[in-house]
C-alpha cells in the first residue's frame, strides 16, 4: 500500500515536472518568436533605409554626372562655343536649303551694314541688342583709328564691340577706295582684302572669309571675274545684296529709306544692304526689324557656307 502511494507520488511529480518543462518551452518559444519578429522588423527598417540611400545615391550620382558635364563644358568653353556656333550655322544652312527647295515656308533675312565702324555704330548695336538680332558688318579699316563722326573716339574699339556680341565680322576691303585705284587690278583688290582681314583679326581675333565688293561686284567692271577667281583661290566667299534702304546714295528722308526697304523685300531669303553711318537707316531700323519679323522672317548673321555667299 505504501509502495503504491509512493509510486503515485512519483507519477504526480513527473506530471508536474513535465508541465513545468512544457511551460518553460512555451515561454522560450514566445520569447524567441518575439525576438525574431523584432529582428525581422529591424531588417525591414534597414531595407527601407537601404532603398532610400540607394535612391539618394542614384540622385547624387546623376547630379554629379551633370556637374561633371557642366564642368567639362566650362573647361573646354572656347571649343564648346565654337562647336555650338558651327552647329548653329549648319542648321541655318539646312533651313536655307529647305527654303530654296520650297520644302519650308520659313523666311530668312540677313541684315548687313557696310563701311563701318562709325561712332554711330554704337547706336546700331544698341538697337540690335534690344531686338536680340545678330547682323553682319562689312567693315573697312582706313583711318578708323579716329571715328569719322566723332574725332575724339577711336573706332578700332568698335570692331571688338561688334564681334563680341556675336555679329559676323566681314570684309569690305581696307581702303574702300573705289576712286583711288581699288579696282585698278585684281591683285590690288586682293591686297586690300588681306589688309582688312589682318586688321579684323588683330582687333577681334576673328578670321573672316566673307567679302563684299565696295559698290557691289558690278563696280569691279572688267576685273570682276578675275577678282572672283582670286577671291576663290584665297578661300574667300563674296556677297552682294537683294534688298536695300538706298542709304549708300543720297537719301532725302527716313520715309524714303523706308519705302526703298519695303519695296525691295520680295524674296524668301533676303540680304539687306545698309550703312551704319546713316541716321535715316538708324531711325527706321527698329521698324525694319519688326516688319521683317511680322512678315515671318528670321534674322541671322551671314556665314561662309550660306547659299547667299558666292564661292
Amino acid at each position: 500500500m505504501a509502495k503504491k502511494k509512493q509510486r503515485s507520488k512519483r507519477i504526480t511529480f513527473l506530471i508536474y515536472l513535465l508541465s513545468i518543462i512544457i511551460v518553460c518551452i512555451i515561454v522560450f518559444n514566445i520569447i524567441l518568436s518575439l525576438k525574431a519578429e523584432n529582428i525581422a522588423n529591424e531588417i525591414n527598417i534597414i531595407h527601407n533605409e537601404y532603398a532610400e540611400l540607394e535612391k539618394e545615391l542614384e540622385n547624387k550620382n546623376n547630379d554629379l554626372t551633370e556637374i561633371d558635364e557642366q564642368t567639362k563644358i566650362i573647361i573646354n568653353i572656347d571649343d564648346n562655343i565654337a562647336e555650338i556656333k558651327k552647329e548653329y550655322f549648319s542648321n541655318i544652312k539646312t533651313l536655307e536649303d529647305k527654303i530654296l527647295a520650297s520644302e519650308s515656308d520659313k523666311k530668312i533675312a540677313y541684315l548687313t551694314f557696310d563701311d563701318g565702324p562709325y561712332y554711330l555704330s554704337y547706336k546700331y548695336l544698341e538697337v540690335l541688342d534690344k531686338y536680340d538680332v545678330l547682323a553682319t558688318f562689312f567693315t573697312i579699316g582706313n583711318n578708323k583709328e579716329v571715328c569719322y563722326d566723332n574725332k575724339s573716339a577711336n573706332c578700332y574699339l568698335l570692331y571688338n564691340e561688334e564681334a563680341k556680341r556675336g555679329h559676323t565680322m566681314a570684309n569690305h576691303t581696307f581702303s574702300h577706295g573705289i576712286f583711288r585705284g581699288l579696282y585698278s587690278s585684281p591683285t590690288n583688290f586682293i591686297e586690300q582684302v588681306k589688309k582688312q582681314e589682318e586688321l579684323i583679326r588683330n582687333q577681334t581675333g576673328v578670321t573672316t572669309n566673307i567679302v563684299r565688293f565696295p559698290g557691289g561686284s558690278a563696280t569691279a567692271g572688267k576685273y570682276k571675274n578675275a577678282i572672283i577667281e582670286l577671291l576663290r583661290a584665297n578661300g574667300y566667299g563674296w556677297v552682294d545684296w537683294t534688298a536695300a534702304t538706298g542709304d549708300g546714295g543720297s537719301l532725302a528722308s527716313a520715309d524714303q529709306a523706308w519705302n526703298n526697304f519695303v519695296n525691295s523685300i520680295d524674296s524668301n531669303i533676303e540680304v539687306i544692304l545698309m550703312h551704319d553711318y546713316n541716321h535715316y537707316t538708324l531711325e527706321i531700323l527698329p521698324k525694319e526689324i519688326e516688319y521683317l519679323k511680322e512678315n515671318g522672317y528670321s534674322l541671322f548673321p551671314l556665314f561662309y557656307e550660306s547659299n547667299m555667299v558666292n564661292k
Binding site: 566650362i74 564648346n80 562655343i81 555650338i84 542648321n91 528670321s298
Partner: peptide, 27 residues
C-alpha cells in the same frame, strides 16, 4: 569657381545655345 571665373564665356555659350535651339525649332 570655374563658372565664376568664366562667367562671361558661359553667358556667351548659353546665348549661342539658345540661338541654336531657336533655329532647330524653325527646322
Amino acid at each position: 569657381k570655374l563658372k565664376n571665373d568664366n562667367q562671361e564665356k558661359m553667358e556667351e555659350y548659353e546665348k549661342w545655345l539658345k540661338r541654336n535651339n531657336e533655329v532647330k525649332e524653325l527646322l
